[in-house]
Design a protein around this nucleic acid. Structure first.
Lengths: 216, 216
DNA sequence: CCGCTGGCGTACCGTACGGTACGGTTCTAG
DNA sequence: CTAGAACCGTACCGTACGGTACGCCAGCGG
């Protein structure tokens, strides 16, 4: 019952990772209709093993989400020599990574699962996704923004506000529409426009927070 | 089995509305742990009646979501005489309404339910929420934006892009964090800042799309 | 007063699924 | 070769819940 909280570098054996992969696949395919029996069959393992390793269904779900979420690694941009061009490229890269991740099928599935979970006062999954999603972005983006400000390339009072504006400009209504299953947003449809959207968002961000207003 | 699709003005009797209210209350309280038995008990009606009226569980859920979603009515702003001040007030009002709705407990619950539903290729609820949420905003906002453009108060190529930017600037990361159950966002916490956020978003929107850049 | 319809309450059924038990098999250690 | 651990496969149990059946009462037209 007291499932060992997998804090951070919980190392899963390859076999366990295979199980988690199977679980994730099932999650992506069948939505939250994830069955212990189904996972066991897909992973060619016994249910007893599942319970031995992960405690219960929630434990398996948590491990899966956590394990996958931790794999999303935003590239760290170096903020050593910051000129205008480098800053812009960094921001743009952030926007690109953010959009690419959010649009991905895995991300949509994970977010849906976490939201579902949060709808039953079991907020553990929600917190994990939150931590590895928006908050991770924030942690990584803020230093860059502040470096930009120190270099007089950006202008803002609160880096928190700047980050949230950035998030809004990039994500817009895409994520919620994907979560709600908007058929008008096909994968290919979005991916084709990612570059344009990234550029637009970056332009807008600099228009709002650039030290000198640039009317692109 | 063929649940009659409640297209639009499906008039529910007062008794039925009471049932739907009960269902909505349970949804808000217990998340998606909505049980037919629980609804019947709460509404003091029999399960048989529920099935007679709504067909099955999904039918009840759909009716509830649809009925509630339809109650969210954005005030229509008159776009007869558009000066800069009136336009700004309209936009601001939109931002305020949008944020207020999105932040509300009912909205969070409905969106969570719809997302959960969408996670099981049953996208009906997702479509309903989508239709009455983001898309409703879009339908109502676009004419105003275009009127603003025609009056040379706004400048943009695509009203679609302008709408989406507006959405992003207003909503930012608030909705997804609420859906994921972020404890740092308490109801009161947000509501206290709504006015400031609304003003900031409006300022930013006009900075990006105003005919003349105003450096507020 | 009689019968009928609508709806309440409850008991009931079937099933799906979380969780457990157990026999059989492979692998490793000594 | 033997003992034991790990694990697979499967059968099994308990329960929760969607959905149905039925008995009962209230209101109402005749």
């Amino acid at each position: 019952m007291p499932v060992t909280i997998k804090v951070n570098e919980e190392t899963f054996t390859p076999r366990q990772q295979a199980v988690l992969t199977a679980a994730l696949d099932l999650l992506v395919e069948n939505g939250d209709g994830l069955t212990m029996t189904a996972v066991a069959r897909r992973a060619s393992c016994s249910k007893e093993t599942l319970y031995k390793w992960f405690g219960d269904r929630d434990g398996l779900l948590t491990a899966t989400v956590q394990w996958q979420a931790a794999k999303v690694r935003m590239p760290v941009v170096d903020r050593s020599h910051l000129n205008a061009k480098a800053l812009r490229l960094s921001i743009e890269q952030f926007a690109r990574d953010l959009l690419t991740v959010i649009v991905g099928e895995v991300s949509v599935t994970l977010n849906r699962t976490a939201v579902t979970h949060a709808a039953q006062e079991k907020d553990s999954l929600g917190l994990i996704v939150l931590e590895n999603g928006p908050l991770a972005i924030r942690r990584r983006l803020k230093p860059i923004l502040e470096a930009g400000r120190d270099a007089r390339l950006l202008r803002f009072d609160s880096s928190e506000d700047a980050y949230r504006t950035f998030f809004g400009l990039v994500v817009r209504d895409v994520q919620i529409r994907l979560l709600l299953g908007d058929k008008a947003l096909t994968q290919s449809n979005i991916e084709a426009n990612i570059e344009a959207d990234v550029k637009a968002a970056t332009d807008q961000f600099f228009a709002l927070y650039g030290a000198k207003a640039n009317n692109a």
